[in-house]
Amino acid sequence: MLKFLVVKFLEMVARLFCRVDKNLVTLYFLNYSGCNLNPVLEAYEKGEIKDCKFKVIELPEKPFESLWKRLLFKWHMIEWTAKSKVIVTTHGGRRLRRKTVHIELWHSFPTKKAGLMDKRVQRYDSKPNIFCSYSDFGTVLRNACVGLSISLYVVTGAPRNDYLLTVNGKKNLEKLFGMSLEGKRVIIFAPTFRFGYEDFVEGNKSYDNFFGFKEFDIQKFLSFLEESNIVFFLKLHPNEEWLFVDHFKRFGSDRIKIIESAILKRERTDFYKLLNGADLLVTDYSSIYFDWLLLDRPVVFTPVDLKEYKETRGGWLLDYDFWAAGPKCVDQDSLQKEVKKSLEDPNYYRPERQLVVKLVHQYRDANSTNRVLELIQKALRGERLV
């Protein structure tokens, strides 16, 4: 209750003493792990959007160590929100004035129950002016979780997906890790998180090995990578990377690399600038898979704790077995077998992938960033957005 009252007092102070800058756009930026704000910011830095100024508020990836630091950062956010003509977010937020326009890009395609559909919280407090969506189908799924007026949605596609269709991910991986990938096959494993959302634990995956398999032989896996000429990249979810990255570093080798958030931040390189450098994606329940579909490349799933994840997370908006268009593996032998088959046969599960991509992506071009920039410019000019 005290925290609530303090925040309300800070908001009142900001409304009284912070004047709105009609040219100010504030971006609430979280990380370089596939952030939809990165392409927008790059476009601004290249001069593709004019007559405005951008302010970037970098959100913390880990909890603050003290209450005082948390309050200082909260005031920092409130101050710039009160000053802004437009705010753009990817993880919710709220405007403080009616004249401020809030554009929500979000950070994933809606697959899991969240917000109003999540029995653990059953709420969604953010009320943006515009909610950007992947498709009409995606809008229906998203609105089940957030309960907004359907008129607030605009289908733009996700700006980060422009990277998938334009950059050379393999060259970016080579540059980031100082290695040659010429003639090599590349696999990226990008699992979702089990820890890091509120105080919940989702599923019961073991972290003894990358995949959570009950039995795993690292030497056998390294031999498989060597024989198949594969370089394996692990990208942990930022919610729990800080908990487990040091544990997995002990497996590092010429064939196993870890894509760390700290490295991406240092190099100002978004993970999606690396993603299309892979020949195959491995994931469990991460919605990164739906973006990957734009590349029409194989994907292998590792649903090791499917039953427990459903029970603790609350389930899916979509049927997992149908929408996960690729082989499912819960042990090392089947994973290695399916990876090999998927790399050798480009048509393996292709019809299933092509069905899903048509439903998920209304646009399959590299112009999602431009559509979002157009919305921002309209908001700055005070024009009707939809």
Rank of each mutant, 00 (worst) to 15 (best):
D217N: 15
L59A: 05
K340W: 07
F29E: 00
N36C: 11
E374F: 08
K307V: 14
L181R: 10
I87T: 03
D279L: 00
T369M: 10
E308F: 08
F64W: 14
R194C: 06
E65Y: 13
K184S: 11
H91C: 05
L37D: 02
L176E: 01
S108E: 13
I187L: 14
V154N: 04
K53G: 06
L306S: 14
K112C: 04
F251W: 09
R364L: 04
K214E: 15
N31A: 06
V7D: 07
V356K: 04
T369I: 06
R19M: 15
G115K: 00
W106R: 04
T269E: 03
L116H: 04
C329T: 14
S180W: 09
R95D: 07
K257P: 00
A14R: 04
P346T: 12
P39M: 10
V386W: 08
I130E: 00
K55M: 06
K171S: 12
G34W: 02
V86I: 09
D296Y: 14
G277I: 02
F322G: 02
D21F: 00
S253P: 02
G382T: 07
A144G: 11
G183L: 11
N370A: 10
K69H: 12
E58W: 08
D199W: 02
P238D: 05
L236H: 03
F224K: 02
C18R: 15
I49H: 06
R98N: 10
A144I: 05
V155K: 06
E308H: 07
G326V: 00
S261K: 11
F109T: 02
E226P: 01
T90I: 14
G157W: 01
L96T: 01
T269A: 02
L116N: 03
D321A: 09
L373P: 11
D208K: 15
Y44G: 12
I57F: 07
L148D: 06
T166R: 10
D321R: 13
N172K: 03
S135M: 07
A366G: 07
S286Y: 08
L359I: 05
V146Y: 01
K3H: 12
W106Q: 01
L148P: 02
K83M: 09
E383V: 03
H237G: 04
A144L: 14
T81Q: 06
K235I: 12
G47L: 10
W75Y: 15
V121G: 00
S180L: 11
L71F: 14
K127R: 15
L280V: 14
F137D: 10
T139M: 01
S84A: 12
M1Q: 14
S133P: 00
E79S: 13
R268W: 06
L173D: 01
S223A: 14
F137T: 14
G183N: 14
V356R: 03
M117L: 07
E267A: 11
S66K: 12
E344P: 07
T166A: 09
K249E: 09
E226H: 08
C52G: 07
L293M: 10
M1Y: 06
E202H: 05
Y272N: 03
Y163G: 04
